[in-house]
C-alpha cells in the first residue's frame, strides 16, 4: 500500500517535471524576444528539474544517492538564476533589441514607500 502511494507520488512529480520542462521549450519557441524567452527557460527549468529530482529521491534509497541528488538540486538552484542573469546582462550590454512596445521605467529617485499606481512613460 505504501509502495503504491509512493509510486503514484513519483508519477505525479515526474509528469509535473516533464510538463514544466515542456512549457519552457514551448515558451522558447513562442515568445517574441530574448528576454522573454529566458523568462520561460530560466524559471521552468528550475521547477522542472527540481520535481524530477524529488521523484528520484522517492525511488532511490540510500544515503549516497540522496546526498548526490540533493547536491544536484542545490547546484541547479544556484546555477540556473546565475546563468539566466549572465545571459540577460550580456544581451543588455550588447544592445539586443527588445520586442516592440516594451517600456522602460526608472523608479530609482522615487521616495521609499511611495508607490505610483503603475504608470510610467512608454
Amino acid at each position: 500500500m505504501l509502495i503504491v502511494i509512493r509510486d503514484i507520488l513519483v508519477v505525479i512529480f515526474l509528469l509535473g517535471g516533464f510538463f514544466f520542462l515542456a512549457v519552457g521549450i514551448v515558451g522558447l519557441i513562442r515568445l517574441p524576444d530574448l528576454f522573454n524567452r529566458l523568462h520561460a527557460l530560466g524559471k521552468c527549468d528550475t521547477l522542472g528539474s527540481g520535481l524530477i529530482i524529488l521523484a528520484m529521491l522517492l525511488i532511490y534509497p540510500g544515503v549516497t544517492n540522496i546526498a548526490k541528488l540533493l547536491l544536484m538540486g542545490a547546484l541547479m538552484f544556484i546555477i540556473n538564476p546565475v546563468m539566466t542573469h549572465l545571459i540577460t546582462k550580456t544581451a543588455y550590454v550588447r544592445g539586443t533589441e527588445m520586442v516592440k512596445g516594451s517600456f522602460t521605467v526608472s523608479t530609482y529617485y522615487e521616495e521609499e514607500g511611495e508607490f505610483l499606481a503603475g504608470e510610467g512613460e512608454e
Binding site: 513562442r30 526608472s106 523608479t107 530609482y108
Partner: peptide, 24 residues
C-alpha cells in the same frame, strides 16, 4: 512563478507587456 509563466505561454494570445524597470 512557474504557473504564471505556464499560463502566459500556453494561452492562445500571450498577454505580455515586457519592459525594463530600475529599482533602488
Amino acid at each position: 512563478a512557474n504557473f504564471a509563466v505556464a499560463l502566459i505561454v500556453l494561452s492562445p494570445k500571450m498577454n505580455i507587456s515586457p519592459g525594463l524597470i530600475v529599482l533602488k
